[in-house]
Write a protein that binds this DNA or RNA. Structure first.
Lengths: 205, 205, 205, 205
DNA sequence: CGTTAATCGAGACGGTACGTCCTGTCTTCGG
DNA sequence: CCGAAGACAGGACGTACCGTCTCGATTAACG
């Protein structure tokens, strides 16, 4: 009565083909320039696979790229929970998904596509949002423990912390900012603020 | 007296064609989805111009897009110089180049190329860097007047301020953050910090 | 057992496309004015075929036209062998490849290329030369049977017979010469000569 | 009252430009492959002339080519009038307009255009027809003197004589036929016929 | 001797076609 | 039924000419 899943008949799909295709996509994304510069024919040739084998699994180029990117996601980072500052530094340090440079390069070339292309939101949901949720958790805990202001806008804080890291680490925005230790400096600055504590504070009110 | 430039011979290039082409590119960029989804043939057709007329002016699609985007740049915003906070709010409010929505939409679809594509760096140089320089100036002035900490890392502060605005205003990162008044909130939070002033010890008691 | 030919892999080429393309070329050649007035895009559109499908089969326009023309060739005409005169008349009558008027029109617009264009010599080899060989055979037989002079230069005779027919029937040289029955009159005149039999001395008396 | 010709005002047209253009056309026709392979831009560049200067004189490419070809025509050959045979040989020897090889090469690449292209008939009228008329004259004289049959069809005879020469000398039809002395052999064969005088003549009746 | 007006070279203009490449679908084999 | 191989219709690429058009600069004859 269930009968919803047809028993597969004939030759089963090759797992090796799946891997080869995803690998080829990631390789070409890392090598190439843009997302649309990636051609399905190149993917098929690199993977040693027929084009139909790709289209049997993914409906179009976008869906394939989304899946390829999602396949890169590592485990959601855990935090030690000792202090809010340490946890935030730990999380921001891993904004570039892996230590793997290839992943960073790939995500960089897809970030803006993320907004235009509805299909790409799959990437966002699968990879980025979970990590943001962990950070929200840490921030809420900080408010609870009194490490952070009681009236803190969690989403604003999220933007303050992740914004600089994304523009800097992923988009490589400012070459003058050394990448090393950036997470620490950002966290500290956001925690303490940049205004002068002792000086003419009234000027900024 | 300089006489270095060759006197132009033959029929001069039509200024109307220039305009029509740039207009067509901007229109199609705003309408379309991606930068490479823009086709030169569509540009020619929309502009009512032969393809050769485009290729006579720009060597390829990228160069054309770069020039079209640069053509959108308004004047570099001036600051009133009353207080650092006011100036920063004013600058960040205009991160989305114009109030013009089209420009924002276009720049959003081009940000990916900006990093990957060497040719696109022309946009960066022409549009973004001048605005960043204005902000550096304001920050340096703030250090001088004592409104900002004496040991402030200017580039870091730049990243703290512009990072959230870019990810939020241009990439439309977080739908939960209302765009209105964001600049003000970001500036205030970065100036004051998000940590609890009274210290964690008190908070935990 | 020869096994020299590689077994074909992948989807085989469509025979319908071949036909449609050749048909389109012949139609456009008959309709149009010149060989180069024929545009590949028109061929593709008329045949309902992508341009790539044409270029997959022929490297360029010339090769395509050559094959299209060759495809028109009917069977090499047979001769009855009763008398040399009858056979020659029969052969010359069919100089315009078919009774088909289209073929004649097409071949007429291609004769120029035939000499200049090395690629076009394929047409010559495939169509014209076999027919000339049949005529040579008839002439040699005539020498054997004594119907033709023993010292006859076969190639010269070939030129005497085919030359007028080509210039007249194919190039439409002289509107004053009725095309009907021309083959007969040419053969008779070439066989008998146009000089006065009784000699110039008598004629002048 | 006549006033048909407006007195020319302004700068008169340059005769040097005319020459240079015609020269360039002939040169490119002789060098190139086909009539349409000749590009107006190449003509202008070769002649060192602006394109407008060409189009001011000729309405299109065809008209220009026609005039260029006509400009090659030498004087209509005169005949000595001694014997019909000698005159015919003399005329046929000069079928290739000049001894100039370039002219022959050019006319060869234009001959078939002659039929398709209405505009090209100007060439025919200006160059070929006068020569044919001379030959008709000779043939009529031969009939009068009794050198040729009294019932000779002049147009047929014209075809018999010029046909082989055109196909052979201009279209380079048959490489086995030595070009040298061909005119003589053709004339003799056409005068005497190729049938056996003494043999089974009845076979050809 | 200056005005006038057509011509000159140069080359940009809107188009059309070229031959190449890629997309997403299809059609054949052999496994 | 899946797999590779590759053909299919369609469409964009960047180039080359077409025949027309605009430039500033010549170059004569007219006034």
């Amino acid at each position: 009565m269930t009968g919803q899943e047809r028993k597969p008949v004939g030759r089963p799909r090759s797992a090796r083909a799946d891997e080869a295709i995803i690998d080829a996509v990631l390789e070409l994304l890392a090598t190439g320039n843009t997302a649309d510069a990636l051609s399905m024919e190149a993917v098929a040739a690199t993977a040693g696979v027929g084009k139909a084998t790709i289209y049997r699994r993914w409906p179009n180029k976008e869906a394939l790229i989304v899946d390829a990117v999602i396949s890169m996601k590592g485990p959601v980072p855990a935090v030690r929970g000792r202090s809010v500052r340490d946890d935030l530094v730990a999380l921001l340090t891993r904004v570039g998904l892996h230590t793997d440079g290839r992943a960073t390069r790939i995500i960089a070339c897809l970030l803006p596509e993320l907004q235009r292309n509805a299909a790409m939101h799959g990437c966002y949901q699968a990879i980025i949002e979970p990590r943001r949720e962990v950070m929200r958790e840490v921030l809420r805990r900080g408010v609870g423990t009194g490490e952070l202001r009681a009236d803190l806008d969690i989403e604003l804080a999220l933007a303050l912390l992740s914004g600089p890291m994304i523009t800097q680490n992923v988009l490589r925005w400012n070459p003058k900012l050394a990448a090393g230790g950036l997470a620490e400096r950002v966290v500290d600055a956001v925690l303490q603020g940049i205004a002068c504590r002792t000086g003419p504070a009234e000027a900024s009110s």
